[in-house]
């Protein structure tokens, strides 16, 4: 596999996405909702002096957690501890939801979209190997989601520190757990989902069907990631290490299996045309 060719395939898709407002405007809105609006509002609520009842409820939840979790939460006052918990634990799964949503939208049409445009025929007759095409499409799907996450994560860090920092006692975000989440856990979850979605994109008849299938794939992965990241409350470093390692194993298996399943006939859609006709 020649990586310059993989990058050629990925780059043209990224270029198309970059100049396509109907793609990146919803992406920016999604990022805005999850990384800016929701944290801004929620942190705003718990840091208000009038929010004593909410703060008390969060405090009760925190006291019911195992001892290790309690040790992790920083802050001298109940309000500070509530703000810290919200910023560090409650919104952690957002880091998975955003890239999966964005990337699955691109990945879903990675192959079937090319076929509908006739580009599948061009790629099938090109000297690119199917593995290079698969890897290129996968990369082009993963990059927008992951870049959006990195940008969103940076903005989120600023918001968290700006709103909750003064209560907690200074800038405290990102924590070690969040660094591990973004750099070690999110990428394999994204790759697991995309390895299945791009594979499905080569098998379905239309982009609409691919989008449906992508939603079905994304949902359980988002739920799994939610469950996994909630374990960060107990011991962020250990949880991230375990969850990330398991996810990487699945990702590597998924990518290898997806690459093996690709062939030129899927780019041409010949088997699909026949099943459609019959």
């Amino acid at each position: 596999m020649r990586w310059n060719r993989v990058w050629t395939v990925a780059r043209i898709d990224l270029h198309r996405l970059f100049i396509s407002k109907d793609y990146w405007i919803p992406m920016v809105i999604l990022m805005g909702i999850f990384f800016v609006f929701i944290p801004w509002v929620l942190l705003g609520v718990v840091t208000r002096p009038q929010s004593l009842e909410i703060v008390a409820q969060i405090g009760e939840v925190l006291t019911s957690l195992p001892g290790a979790a309690g040790d992790v939460v920083q802050g001298e006052t109940p309000q500070a501890r509530a703000a810290y918990s919200l910023a560090v634990f409650l919104l952690a799964p957002v880091a998975i939801v955003v890239p999966l949503t964005i990337s699955s939208a691109v990945g879903a049409q990675a192959i079937v979209g090319e076929r509908e445009r006739g580009i599948g025929e061009f790629l099938a007759h090109s000297p690119l190997s199917v593995k290079e095409i698969y890897a290129g499409k996968l990369l082009a799907s993963a990059i927008p989601g992951y870049v959006a996450t990195l940008v969103g994560f940076s903005i989120y860090a600023l918001i968290v520190n700006f709103r909750a920092g003064p209560l907690v006692g200074g800038w405290f975000f990102p924590t070690t757990g969040w660094w591990l989440l973004i750099l070690w856990v999110v990428p394999p979850f994204l790759l697991v989902a995309l390895s299945i979605i791009v594979r499905l994109s080569a098998r379905v008849q239309s982009t609409a069907a691919a989008q449906q299938a992508a939603s079905l794939i994304s949902l359980p992965i988002i739920m799994a990631s939610y469950v996994a990241t909630s374990g960060f409350v107990l011991d962020p470093t250990l949880a991230a290490a375990i969850v990330g390692t398991v996810a990487w194993i699945f990702a590597i298996w998924g990518l290898a299996s997806g690459a093996r399943a690709m062939n030129r006939e899927r780019l041409l859609g010949v088997g699909i045309e026949v099943s459609k006709a019959s």
Binding site: H15, R16, S20, G118, I119, E121, F122, H125, S126, P127
Partner: peptide, 19 residues
């Protein structure tokens, strides 16, 4: 190797419209 040495014009021009 064959595809490297072949030029193909498919029935549909197969171009990226937005580029």
């Amino acid at each position: 190797e064959i595809r490297r040495r072949c030029g193909v014009v498919p029935p549909k021009p197969a171009l990226y419209d937005r580029l």
